[in-house]
């Protein structure tokens, strides 16, 4: 009904009008190149736009408002933390030892690096090996493949507190590692395993089959093909996944509280309890004693994670560009 009304009310002199106001806007924008008529046409389009139903207006406004609100939320969250935190970043926040006066985040930062490296040392070889198996060795319909997919999907959905509890039961208690760097790293390794596997598998699958054929055709075995042709080509994608994994490790707290503990000093062995920056942040925030330092710590943590995630995005873009060019 509305459409008929639209058509009838439009001035007949109007160019063969696109049937809808929405399309008219685009068509109008495109046609605006014809300079002379541009102004008049825009005016007409606008007038036509007033003929859009109220319902169309609402439907147009809703997504725009939602996007605006989302953008505002993101902006506010990040800017608020930065504004509140940056003035309180001081040198003593980075002293090498922690005490309750300087509330230094340095030990936690170093621990985060150690924890990350250790967790990656477990997760990357296993995850990469698993991905190579899924992408290059397993035949379709292999029962193990189905099982591994289900397992990886399940692992990906398990909440981090459940990982923490498992780490507590298995590594800390049963293997007797106490709350330690090692127990925390192993727990985190399991947590990021599905991420590493799925990104690495995707990156391997993105390598053109022609290169596989070329390599096999020259008499290279599967292992050599994987090592010399596939892994180098898939490297950016694999790295993007690893960096995403680093982001998760750095941001993780629930899985670590009961596996790596909350000790503030630097570890002297793999079996010493440590706190990472996120756990440190949690402890500070829930103690509520050093609000300013907490803001400053939040800034450091936020920037660290943002940096890591940006690196991942950039790498992934580079990969997709490379694949497109071939």
């Amino acid at each position: 009904m509305r459409l008929i009304h639209d058509g009838a009310s439009g001035p007949t002199a109007l160019k063969p009008a696109p049937a809808t106001a929405g399309a008219a806007t685009t068509a109008g924008a495109a046609g605006a190149a014809a300079a002379g008529a541009a102004v008049r046409r825009t005016a007409r389009v606008r007038r036509r736009a007033t003929h859009r139903s109220v319902r169309d207006h609402i439907l147009h406004a809703l997504p725009c408002l939602a996007a605006l609100l989302t953008a505002a939320l993101i902006g506010f969250l990040i800017i608020y933390i930065l504004v509140m935190g940056i003035p309180h970043i001081s040198p003593d926040l980075f002293s090498i030892t922690y005490n309750s006066v300087n509330v230094s985040l340095m030990p936690a930062l170093i621990n985060t690096v150690l924890m990350t490296l250790l967790a990656l040392a477990f997760a990357v070889p296993i995850g990469l090996g698993g991905a190579i198996f899924l992408a290059e060795y397993a035949r379709r319909g292999n029962r193990l493949v189905g099982l591994i997919r289900i397992a990886a999907d399940t692992l990906a959905g398990v909440p981090s507190i459940v990982y923490g509890l498992f780490g507590l039961l298995f590594f800390v208690t049963m293997l007797g590692w106490r709350m330690s760097l090692l127990a925390g790293a192993c727990t985190l390794a399991i947590m990021i395993l599905p991420l590493i596997i799925s990104t690495a598998e995707e990156a391997l699958r993105a390598v053109p089959d022609a290169w596989r054929e070329g390599s096999f055709g020259l008499g290279a075995g599967r292992l050599r093909t994987v090592g010399r042709i596939l892994l180098p080509s898939a490297l950016p994608g694999i790295l993007a996944g690893v960096i995403l994994g680093i982001g998760r490790i750095v941001g993780e707290s629930a899985a670590l509280i009961y596996t790596a503990g909350t000790a503030t000093s630097l570890p002297t062995s793999l079996f010493d309890s440590t706190r990472t920056l996120s756990v440190h942040m949690y402890v500070l925030a829930s103690e509520g004693l050093h609000l300013e330092k907490t803001y400053a710590t939040a800034v450091v943590l936020l920037l660290l994670v943002l940096l890591i995630n940006t690196a991942s995005v950039v790498l992934a873009r580079r990969l997709s560009r490379k694949v497109r060019n071939v």
Partner: peptide, 17 residues
């Protein structure tokens, strides 16, 4: 990218916010 950033923010930072 802003939405992607949101996904990377640690939960403690959300909690603190």
């Amino acid at each position: 990218p802003a939405v992607e950033l949101l996904a990377g923010i640690p939960s403690v930072v959300y909690g603190f916010f």
